[in-house]
Design a protein around this nucleic acid. Structure first.
Lengths: 247, 247
DNA sequence: GATCTCATATTGTGATCAATAAATGATCTT
DNA sequence: AAGATCATTTATTGATCACAATATGAGATC
């Protein structure tokens, strides 16, 4: 069969729009997921199929599928009109979210600690060093990124393909709010719990590692709630409708 | 087979293609979710967009979106070719699944117990009565259905819109396997833990209620694993490719 | 000046189409 | 006769089209 795909190369004045089939939505999904965790999208922002498709250089169809999946993962919510937007979290929901995080990520940490290898620990230490640098420079993007990397490489070591998707769903949910909060000057940035966790992993003390993660999560939650209480979660943000694809 | 979502009847000799816009996929999604929990789909079964669309009397498009969401919720998995199928659970994954169930549903039960009203308790008691009847009659369908109803009305009382979706995701995952296992004669059917939970709720004893749920889940897990061990999870089933929409 | 109404534009939804890729079956060769 | 190759069929995927509902804005009315 194989009908000679041909005319991309030799075609001099190629008018062909270069069809390029094959699984675009995987790309888009990864991009959006990362974007949600790292602050490319803001709470309350509505996602437009056509705008996003234009941004990704594709048709609305793959984007529709991706948004659909993110809605299913509770990372996005749909309005009565069928549009999807980034949810705006109430302090209560944020609190619930972090309570569940403590359980799930605590469990993952415990499992991971029991399987921890020296290679894993040194990898985590390296990531934490990057995090410290990002904190030093007040670099929100790299701070979120390396913090996420630290947690997820740790949980990945638990090798539980049932815990992992649940944890990811939670991170997708609080991601945008987390980014918003880091914009506030009074928000404390620290990674002291990570040091404790590394120490616990070195000692092979699983329950101490778990305690460390739980403390880390609880501290973050308190910080988030305090800035939410002082300034209100709903900050006025100007860039509302526009996207930032350059990260 | 024809699902007949609404006014097919009134249309006399309707030649009109019956455009019927407006959110078909909600129907399909609810139907599929229930179907997964109640045994309409079997582990290993591959879902055909066209077949399903024909069954629902719609085009492949809304079905595609629904399947996409179910994949995102880990209720279905996609093959390398892009098809989606009902996952076949390994004993290890089943065990992991139920370990997480214990945590999440235990937490939900504890919260629910603290908010339990007499109305809720009597509702749960009524549902449990239906369950007992179903067990008596060895009616798999109503057994699964009322068991699911018992658990979910209990968890619903926790009023946590972060726990609920996670729990639903878990149920969607083990649903098909659960149905398979109930087909095995040696599988024990009982609802004794539910009685204990009702008693705990009546006493306002939250931790006892939690213990009851955890015990219920653990018992179910052991039963599932034992039949998996004796007969293997992968039973040969004939109806593989066909669907049963009539439940 | 505020509110209600209507027209416009933008959005999502569902259907159809073209094209790729996988699965299936048949034919040919060894 | 058994295995491999190739063609046919069927599957999903991405693009485009038509329609409906919603949101937005301007204009008129009270």
């Amino acid at each position: 069969m194989r009908i000679d795909k041909s005319e991309d190369a030799g075609n001099g004045g190629g008018e062909a729009p270069k069809k390029e089939r094959g699984h675009v939505h995987g790309h888009v999904l990864r991009y959006m997921r990362r974007g949600l965790m790292v602050g490319a999208f803001l709470p309350g922002q509505v996602m437009s199929l056509r705008k996003l498709a234009a941004g990704f250089g594709t048709s609305p169809m793959p984007v529709r599928e991706v948004l659909s999946r993110l809605v299913a993962a509770n990372a996005l919510e749909e309005t009565k009109g069928g549009s999807v937007r980034v949810p705006r979290l109430s302090p209560e929901k944020l609190s619930d979210l972090f309570a569940v995080r403590e359980m799930l990520e605590g469990m993952a940490t415990e499992l991971a600690a029991k399987k921890a290898t020296p290679a894993l620990i040194s990898e985590l230490a390296a990531i934490n060093k990057q995090l410290l640098v990002a904190i030093e420079k007040r670099d929100i993007l790299n701070c979120l990124s390396s913090n996420q990397k630290f947690h997820f490489t740790l949980y990945e070591a638990a090798a539980s393909d049932v815990l992992m998707p649940l944890i990811e769903s939670l991170w997708l949910q609080f991601g945008p709010t987390m980014y918003m909060s880091l914009l506030i000057p009074s928000m404390p940035w620290n990674a002291s719990d990570h040091e404790d966790i590394l120490a616990a992993l070195n000692e092979g003390n699983a329950s101490a590692a778990k305690k460390g993660i739980v403390h880390d999560i609880r501290t973050t939650c308190k910080a988030l709630l305090s800035v939410a209480g002082s300034q209100g979660i709903e900050l006025p943000f100007a860039q509302g409708a526009d996207l930032q694809f350059d990260y």
